[in-house]
């Protein structure tokens, strides 16, 4: 109980400080609107349906982009770990691609795919591919020699080997990769929406800046943080609930 109160203490103090700073008149309301003004703007944007529309747009892109990324990265990791030559062929191009920030691809993607969902979803795939791919590869190599020997001695077919040995051994790594990748993709999406979108939370922010509505900018920023945090908490909760008993590493 006390721990929970302590955890809320810092945000509460920060809010108080922010409100005091805004009330003092030292900073103009244009540069830093008061928390209560921001709260008011939040309800106004929500009531008008504008906020819901942009949140929906961002979540839609993240959902599809992230799902696609999980599938592509995991399947490629399976193939790479199964076929050595493929790993050798892909090492150099993947190492190069990994060093390119997804946002650097935006100009090209706009040319190829236009401004819209396709560009945003591609950015999400690019941003979240590597954490999932690299962690899946590491996980798929975690089967120990002893576990392989056991599988051989039990004469497990490849289907049972994948289902009961290989994939469970890789699960903690994959989960870590997916969680990391979600954070990356959420941040990259907002970045991409700031540059090349006509809807979404990133667009809401850049549009509000154009209209000189700093309060709306702050509403956008806080909504991004809040949704990202909520989804991350939801993911962790679901992981602990479904996998925590079987995988001690995921309980923490």
């Amino acid at each position: 109980m006390f721990a929970r109160i302590r955890a809320l203490l810092t945000p509460f103090l920060a809010l108080l400080f922010w409100q005091a700073l805004a009330d003092s008149g030292w900073v103009s309301a244009y540069l830093l609107p008061a928390p209560l003004t921001v709260l008011d703007t939040f309800f106004r944007l929500y009531a008008s349906g504008k906020l819901t529309l942009h949140v929906h747009s961002s979540l839609f892109r993240v959902f599809w982009g992230f799902t696609a990324s999980c599938l592509i990265a995991f399947l490629l990791a399976l193939l790479v770990c199964r076929f050595r030559p493929l790993e050798e062929l892909l090492t150099a191009p993947l190492a190069l691609l990994r060093m390119i920030p997804p946002l650097a691809m935006v100009p090209l993607l706009i040319l190829w795919l236009g401004i819209g969902h396709a560009t945003q979803i591609t950015i999400i795939v690019l941003a979240s591919f590597f954490p999932i791919f690299l962690n899946s590869c590491a996980g798929l190599r975690r089967v120990t020699a002893a576990q392989r020997e056991l599988a051989n001695s039990l004469h497990l077919g490849w289907r049972r080997y994948y289902r009961y040995v290989l994939l469970p051994a890789a699960t903690p790594s994959i989960v870590t990769g997916v969680r990391l990748a979600f954070g990356y993709s959420w941040r990259a999406l907002i970045g991409a929406e700031l540059i090349a979108a006509s809807s979404g939370l990133g667009y809401l922010i850049i549009d509000a800046q154009g209209m000189q509505r700093t309060d709306e900018v702050i509403v956008g920023i806080l909504t991004i943080g809040l949704i990202g945090w909520l989804l991350d908490q939801l993911f962790s909760w679901a992981v602990v609930r479904t996998l925590g008993r079987r995988f001690a590493e995921l309980r923490a």
Partner: peptide, 27 residues
Amino acid sequence: DCAVVFQDPRLLPWLTVEENLALALPA
């Protein structure tokens, strides 16, 4: 025709006792 018992029990830690045992039965 052989079954092996290793020095360490080699139970897969993510499977229950029942699931570990079922691996020895036909799929």
